[in-house]
Deep mutational scan, measured.
Amino acid sequence: KNAAQIVDEALNQGITLFVADNRLQYETSRDNIPEELLNEWKYYRQDLIDFLQQLD
């Protein structure tokens, strides 16, 4: 998997990933985040941060 796929997957589930103060953050109206997504975000944290910062 790559960062773009993970960001896309999150968006499809109503979750927006973004970077604030060099930390990976998310916004969602969901009550909870599936644990497998959280684990994936932790595992790919630096890739996601790098990818999202390139988009800014």
Rank of each mutant, 00 (worst) to 15 (best):
G14E: 04
L52K: 00
K42V: 12
I15T: 02
Q54R: 13
A10M: 04
Q54V: 09
G14Y: 04
Y26P: 01
V19N: 02
E36C: 07
R45D: 09
I49A: 02
R30V: 09
L24A: 00
R23N: 14
A20W: 12
S29T: 13
Y43C: 07
A20I: 14
W41K: 00
R30N: 10
I49V: 07
Q25D: 06
E35A: 10
D56Y: 07
A4P: 05
L24M: 03
Q25E: 09
L37Q: 04
P34H: 04
Q25K: 09
N12S: 15
E9R: 08
Q13R: 09
D50A: 13
Q13E: 09
L38T: 06
E9H: 07
Q53M: 14
L38R: 06
W41F: 10
R45E: 15
D50P: 04
S29W: 11
Q46N: 09
S29E: 14
I49G: 00
Q54D: 09
L24W: 01
T16H: 13
I6A: 01
V19A: 05
Q54N: 07
S29A: 11
Y44W: 07
L52A: 01
A3E: 02
D31S: 11
D56M: 13
L11I: 09
Q54C: 10
N2P: 11
I49D: 01
Q13T: 04
G14P: 01
Q13P: 00
V7N: 03
D50H: 09
N39D: 12
Y43A: 12
R45Q: 15
L17C: 06
A3I: 10
N12Y: 10
I33Q: 01
V19Y: 14
E36R: 08
A20P: 02
F18H: 06
Q5D: 08
W41R: 00
D47R: 08
L48S: 00
Q25C: 15
Y44I: 03
Q25V: 10
E27R: 15
L55R: 14
V7G: 01
Q53K: 13
T16K: 15
E9A: 06
F51H: 07
D8W: 15
D56R: 11
G14V: 02
D31H: 10
D50I: 12
L37M: 11
Y44R: 06
L55C: 09
L48C: 00
E9G: 03
L38I: 11
I33K: 01
D47A: 15
I49H: 03
N2E: 08
F18T: 09
S29Y: 11
R30G: 09
I6W: 02
L37G: 01
L11W: 12
R30M: 11
Y43E: 14
E9F: 07
Q54G: 12
K1C: 05
L17W: 02
D31W: 06
L24E: 01
Q13N: 10
I49E: 04
E40L: 12
L17R: 00
L11R: 14
Q5S: 07
L38F: 08
S29C: 13
L55N: 12
Y26D: 00
